[in-house]
Design a protein around this nucleic acid. Sequence first.
DNA 1: TGTATGGATATTTTT
DNA 2: TATCCATACA
Length: 769
Amino acid sequence: MNNSIYDGLNDMQLKAVMHEDGPLLILAGAGSGKTRVITHRIAHLIASKHVEPWNILAVTFTNKAANEMRERVNNIVGYGAENVWISTFHSMCVRILRRFIESLGYNRNFSIYDTDDQRVVMKELIKQFNYDTKQINDRKALSYISSQKNDLITPESASEEAGRDFLLSRYTKLYSAYQERLKTSNALDFDDLIMKTVELFECDKEALDYYRRRFSYILVDEYQDTNTAQFRLLSYLSGANDPDSPHNLCVVGDDDQSIYKFRGANIYNILNFEKSFPGTEVIRLEQNYRSTGNILNAANNVIANNSMRKVKELWSDKPEGSPIKYIRYNSDFDEADGIASSIRTNINNGASYSEHAVLYRTNAQSRAIEESFIRMNIPYKIVGGLNFYSRKEIKDIIAYLKTIDNGSDDVAAKRIINVPKRGIGATTIGKISDHASMHGMSFYAALKDSKYIDGIGRSVGKLDSFVSMIEHYRALLKLEGYTVVRLINTILDDTGYLSELRLEGTDEAKARIENIEELISKAASFEETIDIPDGDDYSSLLSEFLENIALVADIDTVDPDSDVVLLMTLHSAKGLEFPNVYMCGLEENLFPSAMILYSNDPSDIEEERRLCYVGITRAKSNLTISCASRRMKNGEMQFNPPSRFISEIPRYLITEAPAPGHSQSFMKQEPANVPVRNTNNTPMSYKPYGSRNKKGNLFADNPYITKASSIKGSTASAPAYKPGDTVKHVKFGTGVVKSIEKKDDDYYISVDFENFGIRKMKSAFAKFF
DNA sequence: TGTATGGATATTTTT
DNA sequence: TATCCATACA
């Protein structure tokens, strides 16, 4: 046999690779070689057990992981890998639905709605129902719907559940209306892709049988991140309810790296796997091949503070390596500069940019770092944040393509009906919408009826020419074999979209043109990678292109060969590794985030801690952690103590580096945007947290949950309230004013809050309403 | 119908 | 701070 399949595997890895039939749970700690195990197991199945490649299904969460997996299998077996189904949950479901969705009453060329599309629909519905937007906003409604779908709860059962609960019953009404709207638009959102596939398997025996027979071996990566719907999907495919099925389901995951609860991930999928699949063999991979001893030690100590875990202790035979570097900067800008100059130093010592990554909790933090990098000429790429495909100009072009591909897609059609301006106004659009919903037809179909709609009158001509333009494009695609690239170019010319931007001539317009050019080159490279269909009908090419861009994650587009520093959230960093990692913004209220500190679910903090664990374990040789004494957040200055997670790392693993100019300059530098309050130049009353206390313990004075004071307004005027008044604070809620005292130029007000007790604050700072 | 303006609001993470 | 939305005005 081919020896190379088994070379270099440790005993546990080998055991997992060679496991015979039956359910298999691989608990793979960070850096323990889980991708290696999956790929080698696939290779083993093909080469040694003579399983046909097309009978194997491997599921991941990102395209990047899927592509890497395919490449690695290919390298091991050298043949057949292209026939293994290796794909993400979402693209697998699209593929299944494209074939069988008609049994659910949808059309096979359905659109995929992204978050923006969803919001457009939801905003319309909330308006239509006349709901108070203060009580119900689109984000909340959509996150409610998403969690229902992740748990496979239909609108019907949701509304039964909601009963007469005021808010909940409104949400469920929105849920069913939303679902109807998507159906008329022949569109599915991300969660639908999974849920509809499950529904398909429930109602279409033939479809289920087809895939059951096809996939005799199923492997799932990052299993800890699966939600209930995905679990059900896997159960169907692996014949969980069929006693005769061998249940050749192999799942790989790490409960300590479960960080997607907010997206519906159900940690019990992994914690209870053995119960769901009796006879499961459990294999633990506990040897870490990635990080130095110190880094691993730090990670183990942090995660040990969590209670709900599968027993597992990562170890490594690597040397201790350098200590973890910790710096508390004065400000987020100093932090950014500090990181940039540290990277610069490493580069001067021969390191390459791509050996570095900067990880943070929130996307907004990338801003300051980006600015420092630009100033210091450090090449970088920001992963995530504002997605390329969510830019306005890109969305516009895509909306054209979507309208051409699927005329029922109302969000797309409405987006472009008056872009570029065709003199079709809100009134006209409203009338067409009404007509459409009255007759249960799509917006685009209603456009064709415009001459029968009252009050449209003089717009009929404009609407008709819009319709014939779209029909014309369809014909180009079908009859003349237009590629996507040609189609986009034609649209840009015909509509004058591009010339309008050129005329504008601003920097912004130039950037938009560049983005459009990038879209065209993305389309071109897409067309290179797929088989051009026979004959002249290129419509399927367009559908595939649209599907492709709907399902790419930003991380998928990272070029592994380009020598740049990667900037990304801790979430995006999962599954990656770097020699040098900078984890920044380790502050209470930021990481762990303020949101979870006030949540009433105590397990939330454990998820934050897992996120911290994920971050630490990304580092191979050098880990630098940092925080800032003051930081601009949402346009206000915050002062946060260092994160509790820092104090969970044993002191002896850490070297503390002084922040540049810490002792002298902390007060000398006037914080940006903060009005000068002390005229006589005496130090202000607060001291930096984390400065050494008498015991010499770096962390002892780290008060958890210290609220950031918010600074706003510049002059202290007498407060408009008096003791005994009830006030409402933007963060602390309702409270009663206890006392007000004047000191220097400011008023100090102390308030007894219902939920937070007595708080004393400068009246100029406190936000009451 | 289109644009300008000011005020409110939000930011935790994303396939 | 940055974006979104409603309102006012051209």
